[in-house]
């Protein structure tokens, strides 16, 4: 496939995603919307496979196996889950997106040549910043969603857990995170990369535990928005417009859902 064609196909996938959401504006069109979303995802996957086209059988086996295993797990969960458990299912799914973002950023860090962002120890600074943002937001989404899931499903008490001086702790962690990002941009070591991930994981837990179970739906939509920011951050790193566009229109949801949910 020629490379000029690829961005157009990603654009097509993005348009399909937008139409999928637009379909939800009324119950009559909503099922068609969902179907359009599936087609968009299929286009994005096939395009990526066509353009990356690995030539060794091991890689193809990994791809086929990964999609088969993940797809099977997903399909089984979707069939078995009780409809009343929907909010916690969505929270659990968000944590997967967050973790996936962290892993993809890690992959880009270990093999920067393959992503065209430099070579180890000499990665373009812009990519490092984007990568750190993707990792930090992805990791916060991951642990935050797990806590939200645990609280919604009753595996953890819904009561708010407030640590003494939590604002100071959070502030210190946030400052530490910024310092780590700056150091990471200068030294580009794997230790710093994983330190950013670890600190963000901790921050994700601390942000969500003081929030009571009743406020969780709002938190879930906020985390939904975060997973979008993470995807957009990775999209900038990889220079992939499909990821940027799809990630970007997550962001406003954090505001819209609480308001319109309250209205409903």
């Amino acid at each position: 496939m020629t490379n000029e064609f690829v961005p157009l196909l990603y654009l097509l996938a993005s348009v399909f995603f937008i139409l999928a959401l637009r379909g939800l504006s009324s119950p009559e069109t909503s099922r068609r919307g969902n179907f359009v979303g599936m087609i968009g995802m299929a286009i994005a996957i096939v395009t990526t496979l066509a353009v990356a086209a690995p030539d060794d059988p091991v890689t193809w086996a990994m791809i086929a196996g990964g999609i088969a295993v993940g797809g099977l797990i997903g399909a089984v969960i979707a069939r078995r889950i009780a409809m009343t458990a929907m909010p916690e299912l969505v929270a659990a799914f968000h944590s997967l997106v967050g973790l996936a973002a962290v892993l993809v950023a890690g992959s880009a860090f270990y093999a920067p040549e393959a992503f065209g962002i430099g070579e180890p120890g000499n990665i373009a600074i812009q990519s490092l910043v984007e990568m750190s943002l993707g990792v930090a937001i992805g990791a916060i989404t991951f642990t935050g969603s797990i806590i939200a899931f645990a609280k919604l499903s009753g595996r953890m008490s819904g009561a708010p857990i407030t640590l003494p001086g939590r604002h100071i702790i959070n502030l210190a962690l946030a400052i530490g995170l910024v310092v780590l990002v700056v150091l990471f941009c200068q030294q580009q070591t794997a230790v710093l990369f994983w330190a950013i991930a670890a600190l963000s994981l901790l921050l994700g837990i601390l942000i969500i535990i003081p929030i009571g179970g009743a406020d969780m739906p709002v938190v879930v939509s906020m985390l939904n928005s975060y997973s979008g920011w993470a995807a957009a951050g990775i999209g900038f790193t990889l220079g992939n417009t499909a990821l940027i566009v799809t990630g970007a229109w997550w962001a406003p949801r954090a505001r819209s859902c609480p308001t319109s949910c309250a209205r409903a």
Binding site: A13, F17, A20, L21, G37, G40, M41, A44, I45, T48, L49, A52, A53, P54, T59, M62, I63, G66, V90, F93, H94, L96, V97, A100, A101, L103, V104, S107, A108, A111, A114, F115, N224, S227, G228, A230, A231, I234, G235, L238, N240, A242, L243, T246, G247, W250
Partner: peptide, 16 residues
């Protein structure tokens, strides 16, 4: 949520 798994594009590039 399903659409945010467009991160799969990044995952595929990483595997390949």
């Amino acid at each position: 949520n399903a659409i945010s798994s467009v991160i799969v594009v990044g995952a595929l590039l990483a595997v390949s």
